[in-house]
Amino acid sequence: MDDNKQLKGVVLVRKWWPILASFGGAVVMLLAFFIPSVQDQWDRYKSRKVIEEYVSLGDDLLNEERYKMAEEAFAKAFELSESKRLDIEVKRLTAHVSRVHENPDWNSHISDSLKEIDFQFLLHFQDDKNDQNHRINTLNCYGIFLARSGKLKEAKAVFDEALGLDPKETITYVNLGNLLDQQKKYSDAEKMYRKAIAIDANNIYAHYNLGLLLELTDRPEEAKKELTRANELETKPNE
């Protein structure tokens, strides 16, 4: 009797063994498919590390106002991410549109690489209260772009939007002053420069542009005072 039970048990195991073996093989294959190898994980880690190094480099270059090089660093990081990191693309666009500052001459030619859609795309992703400072910066860049493109009314509206977000942002007043100066509205332009100085007495751009305006309107002594102050701030930026 016991021998029969043992025999049946052996037969049962033999019947089930191929099924169990197949099931075990399938599990192993699934695990191999879903769990990356150690080498794959290491490669991904190194790739992420390189991407973040390029992003960090881009951030540093952007802070140093080296916009073209910053844009190139972000572009490389975006490429390495296989075009999947939208946050990096936003950083690249930020550096790209900031290139309006490369030539300080208000009436200078706009680079052909700058397109209006770049500003609009960036503003679309900065439509958030938590991103207000970046949006103000983009609006100021956009306003400069529009002004240099001859779209003065549109530029004024963009600068006004920036002021609506932060009425104490001095660079917006300076840009408005430049826009009004461009239209030969010298009295209004002067008010904008002086407003910027009232908010920040050490704003070099406000002093410099006000000095040029005073010189243009035949007030040499006042102009000299403002230009001298601008020069002092440039040589002693931490004053």
Results as ranks from 00 to 15, higher is better:
residue 81 S to T: 10
residue 44 R to P: 07
residue 176 L to I: 09
residue 221 E to G: 06
residue 154 E to F: 00
residue 101 H to C: 13
residue 65 E to D: 13
residue 142 Y to Q: 04
residue 15 K to D: 03
residue 122 L to T: 03
residue 6 Q to T: 10
residue 115 K to C: 03
residue 114 L to M: 06
residue 10 V to Y: 10
residue 132 Q to M: 14
residue 2 D to M: 14
residue 34 F to Q: 15
residue 204 I to K: 12
residue 201 A to Y: 11
residue 44 R to M: 15
residue 114 L to G: 05
residue 125 F to V: 05
residue 77 A to G: 04
residue 228 T to D: 12
residue 68 K to H: 08
residue 127 D to Q: 10
residue 64 E to F: 08
residue 92 R to K: 07
residue 64 E to D: 13
residue 180 L to P: 04
residue 120 Q to C: 03
residue 134 H to C: 05
residue 15 K to R: 15
residue 5 K to N: 10
residue 70 A to R: 00
residue 211 G to L: 05
residue 238 N to A: 13
residue 95 A to V: 03
residue 81 S to G: 10
residue 89 E to P: 00
residue 10 V to R: 15
residue 43 D to L: 09
residue 71 E to Q: 06
residue 56 S to F: 09
residue 144 I to S: 01
residue 142 Y to L: 04
residue 209 N to C: 11
residue 27 V to L: 09
residue 23 F to C: 11
residue 195 K to A: 03
residue 202 N to R: 10
residue 213 L to T: 09
residue 171 I to K: 07
residue 183 Q to A: 09
residue 38 V to E: 08
residue 143 G to M: 02
residue 216 L to F: 13
residue 119 F to K: 01
residue 196 A to C: 03
residue 63 N to G: 15
residue 25 G to T: 07
residue 176 L to A: 06
residue 154 E to P: 01
residue 8 K to C: 07
residue 142 Y to C: 04
residue 123 L to D: 07
residue 183 Q to R: 12
residue 190 E to Q: 15
residue 151 K to F: 01
residue 181 D to C: 15
residue 206 A to C: 05
residue 198 A to C: 02
residue 188 D to A: 10
residue 211 G to R: 04
residue 214 L to I: 07
residue 101 H to Q: 15
residue 100 V to R: 00
residue 230 A to M: 06
residue 89 E to W: 03
residue 145 F to I: 02
residue 15 K to M: 07
residue 85 R to Q: 06
residue 67 Y to F: 12
residue 104 P to M: 10
residue 14 R to M: 14
residue 231 N to E: 14
residue 86 L to K: 13
residue 197 I to A: 00
residue 168 K to I: 08
residue 94 T to K: 12
residue 39 Q to M: 10
residue 39 Q to K: 15
residue 24 G to D: 05
residue 84 K to P: 11
residue 144 I to R: 02
residue 72 E to W: 02
residue 95 A to H: 00
residue 203 N to Y: 05
residue 165 L to S: 02
residue 50 V to T: 11
residue 91 K to E: 01
residue 218 D to L: 13
residue 124 H to I: 06
residue 177 G to D: 04
residue 190 E to L: 11
residue 231 N to A: 14
residue 63 N to F: 13
residue 116 E to K: 12
residue 115 K to G: 03
residue 234 E to P: 06
residue 180 L to F: 13
residue 29 M to W: 07
residue 141 C to H: 09
residue 72 E to V: 06
residue 29 M to A: 15
residue 229 R to D: 02
residue 126 Q to P: 03
residue 175 N to A: 05
residue 149 S to H: 04
residue 78 F to R: 01
residue 19 I to P: 02
residue 109 H to G: 06
residue 8 K to H: 11
residue 26 A to C: 13
residue 41 Q to N: 14
residue 199 I to F: 08
residue 34 F to A: 14
residue 104 P to A: 13
residue 201 A to R: 15
residue 130 N to A: 04
residue 68 K to W: 05
residue 154 E to M: 02
residue 21 A to T: 14
residue 107 N to V: 09
residue 69 M to I: 11
residue 115 K to P: 03
residue 238 N to Y: 09
